[in-house]
Design a binder for these strands. Structure first.
Length: 572
RNA sequence: GGUGCCGUAGCUCAGUUGGAUAGAGCACUCGCCUUCUAAGCGAGCGGUCGUACGUUCGAGUCGUACCGGCACCA
């Protein structure tokens, strides 16, 4: 919607013969409402015109004003800017007519038309429980999926399940030897994880056990039927567990392509590297030299012939680009893997694949703990994702008991709010930063939080429910009768029209927190408006128009929460 | 040792291609529920944007060096 406004300014600039490169990019939204809806800094003209910016702004403002464009209240110069004050009713009608027009498509863009985006996210390692660290890969990934769909991409969410490697030999061996001691019938996944932890404990002081695990993995690699069926069982038990948590978080993948999927493709990748004369021997291993790129060599095959992580990711990139026909290929994986992806991408470039520019590592910072220190899944010292979700939901139930004991559907609502709080808490900050994990903060639902946004949405819905005349997309424009003039209203409207631009920017930079902090601001503005003015029961025309604004706010909050994958709540 | 990321209020963080007076939340002090849901609203308190130089009409934002934290590689 901002685009429409900018276009008007660009057109007028043409009328007065103003020529500036990338004019549209230069036009900005001022921080203070008092400076209008749009403004044009003129500093860049100062040199060629040999005049003070202030003087230039005054002259331009006069020229713009002389056009007598009825869309503007005034166009004024202020400290080197030309500030464009649009008429309030114009902005207001732009908002309402856009919402009526776009309806469920509100905020959509068309960047991804006829394009496929493949995204690898939330890919846990089998036999290990998901911990708080997986939360990031999961919720950031799903938010980017939603942002991409919002841009009309065909999205393929990929589960690059960690279902191959020595650890399977370990767990399989542990199962064969100690499996009977654990309650696999009642608690299959917990039992599996306990085996995993026990194996590492015992192997630490017993080289024979470690050796037995590796040997079992060799059997698996050579297709031993007994071990293979054990492996299948381990994977299946784990997937059942993960799916439960993904369901809680509202996450789903389109495809599962675990590490094992690429086993029979590794040979081919290695051959291709050989043919392109990229493979070099180094201390018995085969590597691709990356001196030119300023990195250590990328290991393709170890001394013992075992393939590596990098080889698998080369195969997987080829699969995603060639077979899944990806136009954009994303990896939502922690920051600690940055070097690995830089190496893989560098090798792909060496192989001559220019599409490597369409591959991006969407990295994110890690959780840090004050007291626990570093998590270790081998030792069983972890903050389980499930505990975090569980404690959040519990906390919400407690709050409901205090504040709204009569609330119907409390269990369902407690879950929606608790989950929403956890997701929002993760998405609110720039993903590149580390996050300090603090129970008090995670479970604080006041102020900037998921529940704050959900609550605001509930307020809107509740008003709409109480109102005598149902507001719909179809009749929205007929509700906008009077001009909303209060500062709170004008400011809210001005921010609401930015929604499509925010969603677009968030997609382009793969940064969901743009949307999250935008929603907070919308809520803050709405709550200010709500606290200061009576909405229902004002004179009929004003009431009607304000209800249209309530509807607009509700719709944008709904769309925004949907992008973040946070449930909307019916009451709270 | 090398590379990458981060450093903004007491704490946690926004600050989108460099722009006008650097913004929120938490914590603390004080006000507002017989009136559309107080998980809310208002007021106060709180800053040499890690340090120094540089580029620019203009730097929290860009560059270089250094300091501190985290991570990865050997």
């Amino acid at each position: 919607m901002l685009t429409e406004l900018k276009t008007k300014v660009v057109q007028m600039s043409a009328q007065i013969g103003l020529k500036i490169n990338h004019l549209e990019a230069l036009i900005e939204v001022p921080k203070h409402l008092g400076h209008g809806q749009l403004s044009l800094p003129v500093f860049s003209l100062a040199k060629e015109r040999r005049k003070a910016p202030h003087q230039i702004a005054i002259e331009l403002a006069q020229q713009f004003t002389n056009l007598n464009n009825p869309d503007f209240l005034k166009i004024v110069a202020l400290s080197g800017y030309v500030n464009f004050h649009f008429r309030n009713d114009l902005i207001q009608n732009l908002l309402f007519s856009t919402i009526s027009r776009d309806r469920e498509q509100l905020g959509h863009g068309n960047l991804g038309q006829n394009q496929t985006l493949v995204i690898d996210f939330s890919s846990p390692n089998v036999a290990k429980p998901m911990h708080i660290g997986h939360l990031r890969a999961t919720v950031i990934g799903q938010a980017i999926v939603n942002l991409a769909k919002n841009q009309n991409f065909k999205v393929i969410g990929l589960n690059h399940l960690g279902d191959w490697g020595v650890q399977f030999g370990n767990v399989a061996w542990a199962y064969q030897n100690w499996g009977k001691e654990y309650p696999f019938d009642e608690k299959p996944f917990q039992s599996l994880y306990q085996l995993y932890v026990r194996f590492h404990q015992e192997a630490e002081n017993n080289a024979e056990i470690a050796k037995a695990g590796s040997d079992t993995f060799v059997k698996l690699e050579s297709g031993d039927p007994e071990i293979t069926s054990l492996w299948k069982m381990i994977v299946s038990i784990s997937m059942t567990e993960y799916e439960r948590i993904w369901n809680l978080l509202g996450v789903r993948h389109e495809l599962i392509r675990g590490e094992s999927f690429y086993n029979n493709r590794l040979e081919e990748v290695t051959r291709e590297l050989e043919e392109k004369k990229l493979l070099v021997e180094s201390e018995g291993a085969m590597v691709v030299n990356l001196d030119v790129e300023g990195m250590n060599p990328c290991l393709i095959r170890k001394k013992d012939g075992a393939s590596l992580y990098a080889t698998r990711d080369l195969a997987s990139a080829l699969y995603r680009m060639n077979e899944l026909k990806a136009n954009i290929n994303l990896y939502v994986v922690g920051m600690e893997q940055t070097l690995h992806f830089r190496q893989v991408f560098a090798v792909l470039r060496r192989m001559g694949y220019e599409w490597v520019d369409q591959c991006h590592h969407i990295s994110f910072g890690m959780y840090q703990f004050k007291d626990v220190g570093k998590m270790s899944s081998r030792k069983g010292q972890i903050v389980l994702l499930e505990d975090v979700l569980g404690r959040a939901i519990e906390m919400v139930e407690k709050i409901i008991t205090e504040k709204n004991p009569a609330l119907p559907d409390r269990e369902k609502i407690a879950q929606q709010i608790g989950i929403g709080a956890i997701i929002f808490n993760d998405l609110i900050n720039d993903r590149v930063k580390n996050v300090e994990f603090d129970w008090d903060r995670v479970l604080d639902f006041n102020g900037d939080s998921g529940p704050y946004v959900q609550y605001c949405h509930v307020r809107c819905s509740s008003l709409l429910k109480k109102y005598d005349h149902p507001v719909h997309f179809q009749n929205l424009s007929t509700f906008s009768i009077t001009e909303l003039k209060e500062v709170e209203e004008v400011e809210l409207i001005r921010r609401l029209i930015e929604f499509p631009d925010v969603a677009l920017a968030a997609f382009k930079q793969f940064k969901p927190h743009f949307v999250a902090s935008y929603l907070l601001e919308i809520c803050r503005l709405f709550n200010q408006f709500y606290a200061k003015y009576r909405i229902l029961g004002e004179d009929k025309n004003l009431e009607k128009t304000r209800m249209a604004l309530v509807f607009a706010t509700q719709q944008i909050l709904e769309r925004g929460l949907k992008i973040l994958n946070i449930p909307t709540v019916s009451a709270m």
